[in-house]
Computed example of a mutant assay.
Amino acid sequence: MRLEPAVPDSVRAAIRAPFAGAGAAIDPAVIQPLGLILDLAGEAMHARLFVVQGQGGEESCLRPDFTIAVAREHIASGAAAGRYTYEGRAFRVSPAGADHPEEFLQVGLEAFGGADLAAADAEVASLAWRSASAGGRDDLSLLLGDVGLYRAFVAALGLAAPLTQRLIRAFSRPRTMGAELERAQSGDVAERQGDRIASLLAGLPETEAVAVLQDLWALAGVQQVGGRSAGEIAHRLIERSAAASAPRLTEAEAGLIRRYLEISGEPRAALAQIAALGVNLDGPLGAWSQRLDALEAAGAPRERMSFATGFGRAFGYYDGMLFEVRSAALGEGFSVAGGGRYDALPVRLGGGQTGAVGCMVRPARAWSGALS
């Protein structure tokens, strides 16, 4: 397992210092239930989990980060609200062809509860900024985004419910989003042979659809050799027919979504561009104005902040404000710190709707003496 470079004790203490007194210290279990992490962490993390299994036991994994692990312990405590700081190791398989550390140190905070969500978001993001800055780098920037704002934008378009849900799921999947936007431009094109067969099978029970497909093969003299079974092919064709007949965006709607996702720049200017699209987002945009005021009051420099509507994070449980602290020397794929709001996660874990926001810092990346 590849390790990251050790951080000098004095630097590590400076990076940890902003979190002192911010919450109760916690060190959740390194071993976490695999099924739960697969369900909650998001597709991007699936190939990066270290899977472990005791003899005759259920599969587990090493914690890929602290958020789910801390949330589980908070819910188990029975407390309605709580704030927890941590410092410990997380584990992720290095992506194919990369040489990333697979065991690395994280310092962070997870906060549950609180009535003023915008203020809590700003507090956590500013803590992460101060902690990351304590490592000595002078090339840091703070990127902001909001999954919830995108969802509110899509919901305000008045689209068919299935289409709205597809667009929300596609936010963190660029290829899926591109396909949805391209469908609006495809127009009425001639059906391909596969599409006509898909339409024929779509209204049948799957067992009958398999029999019809096998009859078509027999009439055409097709001999199946290896590959997918008739059942698998019929299932895929039925799915394709359902997708083809599902509601799709008009060209005007697709163009509006593209314009939204292309907005990026100085936060207040970006919010003004969103407002100029003419979609009613007064509530979410007003909350962002409060966040920016609070961030600046907490010491996050305005000239180092930017807002991007298309910004998302790899973990799939985030559902609100997002942020990352980045270093120009390290580049986009190596965030120094990050976090955001994940209000739905405690509920999915069996807890109450209390609101949740958190952050983590990677000391080895924050340290100015580390190799870039």
Rank of each mutant, 00 (worst) to 15 (best):
G88F: 04
G88E: 03
G88S: 14
G88Q: 12
R89I: 03
A90R: 09
A90N: 12
A90W: 00
A90F: 02
A90I: 07
F91W: 13
F91S: 11
R92I: 01
V93E: 10
V93H: 12
V93F: 11
S94L: 04
S94W: 01
P95D: 03
P95A: 04
P95C: 02
A96M: 05
A96N: 06
A96T: 15
G97A: 02
G97M: 09
G97W: 03
A98N: 03
A98Y: 04
A98L: 08
D99A: 13
H100G: 09
H100P: 00
P101G: 10
P101R: 08
E102S: 07
E103G: 10
E103C: 06
E103V: 10
E103R: 07
E103F: 00
F104Y: 13
F104M: 11
F104L: 08
F104K: 15
L105D: 11
L105N: 11
L105C: 06
Q106F: 09
Q106I: 11
V107G: 02
V107D: 00
V107P: 00
G108D: 03
G108I: 07
L109M: 05
L109V: 15
L109G: 06
L109E: 10
L109H: 15
L109Y: 13
E110R: 09
E110D: 10
A111L: 14
A111K: 01
A111Y: 01
F112W: 06
F112I: 15
F112L: 12
G113D: 08
G114L: 13
G114W: 15
G114Q: 05
A115I: 07
A115H: 15
A115G: 14
A115C: 07
A115L: 11
A115D: 14
A115N: 10
D116V: 05
D116L: 08
D116M: 08
D116P: 02
L117A: 11
A118W: 14
A118I: 09
A118R: 15
A118G: 09
A118V: 07
A118E: 13
A119W: 00
A119S: 12
A119D: 13
A120L: 15
A120E: 15
D121T: 00
D121P: 11
A122F: 00
A122L: 01
A122G: 05
E123P: 01
E123M: 04
V124Q: 08
V124D: 11
V124F: 13
